[in-house]
Design a protein around this nucleic acid. Structure first.
Lengths: 254, 254
DNA sequence: CGCGGAATTGAAAATACTCAAAATTAGTGG
DNA sequence: CCACTAATTTTGAGTATTTTCAATTCCGCG
């Protein structure tokens, strides 16, 4: 406490001004540095820009803005959304801690979608030009970056399958099971979690209306498959939900 | 003709055994080598594997197979499709000459979808491990590869918008306008082209039934927006189709 | 306590689907 | 080249799922 340096260092401890450090980050096994050794993590750390806070409902970036950074989510949740010529909107994904935002912008050096914070959140800025330079020198990082982009491609293909091929009930089950798995991967409960997005957002993402989502929740509740209290969800019958999601089971509309 | 070497060289002219050469390929401005200088194209050429022919309806790869190569389409058309647990199928894209197949497999080293030839086609094998090694040495190629992956991400986001947000008529217009633009980019007519895929494939891709596609074609024909003869399509009113695709115009179902 | 946004519920309407039959086209072998 | 069969496409009629519109309830918040 009375260490001679503490007075000097204290002003630097303003969290938002602190340089983000992958080495100390609890997410580094989920995030870009996955699989890197200490030396390489440090090289990555050196190019990571400032940490940025984004308040709920604010945009991290918007469609059309020039692209300079990717963003790794440190804390919080985001949604990404497309807007078409006639004002129609489609949420293309919900992202959580450890996930990377902005990869769609590489192709044209402009963002192709908006990214909005679903709650107060924090991201690490990753200047893409510097990252790409670094990729040439760290083969492990290069390969892992390609895996991340590829994973985004497969994720989107799964959503295409969902939107093109599934009925409302199955879509919603897939949505719940997917959230469940991602929370589990982060060490949280797989059966009990909070929806960070509104019913409207869920509906938009799943290609359904808010009313349909509301009805589905009521139906699943009535069947005893889950409990809902506002945005708090508890999966009471994960096996049944997985079966619904897989399409091996289904329930009559009532 | 009577050149002393001609007899010796002739047997090597079996086209399918010829090593693919990016330098001589008419597609190199659309494909992976885009923007490379001659020296770098040659380095790329050295890692490109054999050229492979895929007959109509055959698979270039299937879901679950181990991943070793990306494929650049030299000639012909492909479709990629997802299959889910209950047998439901979703076509996630139609690919044409100059486009890259297989990027979804990088994430897990296994293919996540099937790629099937829509007609007799030809691809260049690109061993991914070698490509990735080369990327470290050619920054231009590295960046272009990232653009290609990113472009695939944005393409899929557009399809999500289509599937989640648009009515049948608009989906179909988007489909036609997209094909039109891609043929134009390849130097073909933007208003007159052949559908390489069945009505069933179109329907599956757009999240509609074959009957809906058939009715839409009839309706568009009756409106004078296009002519169809089997798989030959002629866009008679591209502006209207673009407006429909953009959602700034629409037509009553009849 | 009352206001406002979000969520739920109900009833009517619409879009696209299913099922069925007919027409057209493609493929095959004589 | 034609005939035959199989596959694909078109068209129609009825149905189903989901949407739309409207009204109500729930909750947070000043």
């Amino acid at each position: 406490m009375n260490h001679p340096l503490s007075y000097v260092e204290a002003p630097a401890l303003n969290v938002s001004a602190l340089k983000a450090s992958c080495a100390n980050c609890s997410l580094h096994q989920l995030c870009l540095p996955m699989g890197l050794d200490t030396a390489d993590i440090n090289r990555l750390d050196q190019i990571i820009g400032r940490r940025r806070r984004i308040a709920k409902d604010e945009r991290l970036y918007q469609m059309g803005e020039p692209f300079t950074n990717l963003y790794a989510i440190r804390l919080g949740h985001f949604k990404t959304l497309q807007i078409n010529a006639s004002g129609g909107q489609q949420i293309t994904g919900f992202q959580m801690a450890g996930e990377l935002l902005g990869m769609d912008a590489i192709s044209t050096d402009r963002h192709h979608c908006d990214a909005a914070a679903l709650e107060d959140s924090e991201v690490c800025e990753i200047p893409f030009a510097l990252l790409e330079e670094l990729l040439s020198h760290i083969p492990t990082l290069l390969h892992h970056f390609h895996r991340i982009m590829s994973q985004e491609i497969t994720r989107e293909q799964s959503v295409m399958l969902l939107l093109g091929n599934m009925r409302a009930e199955q879509r919603f089950a897939v949505f719940l099971v997917n959230l469940s798995a991602r929370y589990a991967a982060r060490g949280y409960s797989s059966t009990s979690f909070q929806l960070r997005m509104s019913r409207e957002d869920i509906g938009n993402y799943l290609g359904l209306t808010i009313e349909s989502i509301s009805r589905l929740l009521s139906r699943f509740k009535k069947q005893g498959w889950l409990k809902v209290d506002k945005r708090e969800v508890q999966l009471l019958n994960p096996a049944m939900l997985k079966a619904l999601a897989a399409g091996t089971e289904n329930c009559s509309p009532m």
